[in-house]
């Protein structure tokens, strides 16, 4: 059996519409020559294509009805949605939009850092460190007798 000669419907479509490679096209052409079934199928499909072109192709040459012509405005309509997103002029608005994106990222990073610091403080690590390395004047003042603190 010669599998190179097998032609699926999809391939026959591609052959008819010029969408297969040149090598495959010559194989398909050979298969069609030797198969009355494929010839019949191809003839029927060609007739369909010809009928479709003949029936509808000329519509594009007809004058367009006024109803459709009038539906297209003479000038560009202002687009509400578009203006809302990009207010005065597109380049400036796009710049602002990019700026807004960066600001959101900055806010997110700062929030994450803040959250980390707050967690660390709550856990006591930073407080302990401060206490350990800072026997400050306040601590000294606290250690004094009460009578001396007021002076």
């Amino acid at each position: 059996m010669n599998f190179g000669r097998f032609v699926s419907d999809a391939e026959l479509c591609g052959f008819l519409d010029g969408e297969v490679s040149a090598a495959r096209a010559s194989e398909i052409a050979a298969a069609v020559r030797s198969s009355p079934d494929l010839q019949r199928k191809l003839r029927a499909w060609r007739e369909q294509s010809q009928w479709l072109r003949a029936s509808f192709g000329r519509i594009a040459q007809e004058p367009v009805p006024d109803m459709l012509r009038q539906a297209v405005p003479a000038h560009r309509l202002p687009s509400v949605a578009h203006e809302y997103v990009l207010p005065p002029s597109a380049p400036v608005a796009q710049k602002y939009a990019r700026g807004a994106d960066i600001a959101i990222w900055k806010l997110l990073v700062i929030s994450l850092i803040g959250l980390f610091l707050a967690t660390a403080l709550y856990a006591g690590g930073v407080v302990t460190g401060t206490q350990a390395c800072a026997p400050t004047l306040i601590q000294k003042w606290m250690d004094q007798p009460k009578s001396l603190r007021g002076s």
Partner: peptide, 16 residues
């Protein structure tokens, strides 16, 4: 919105 000229130009093909 697309330019009105483009829409008018496409009308015959769209009708077909």
């Amino acid at each position: 919105m697309p330019h009105p000229d483009a829409l008018t130009r496409f009308l015959p093909d769209l009708r077909r």
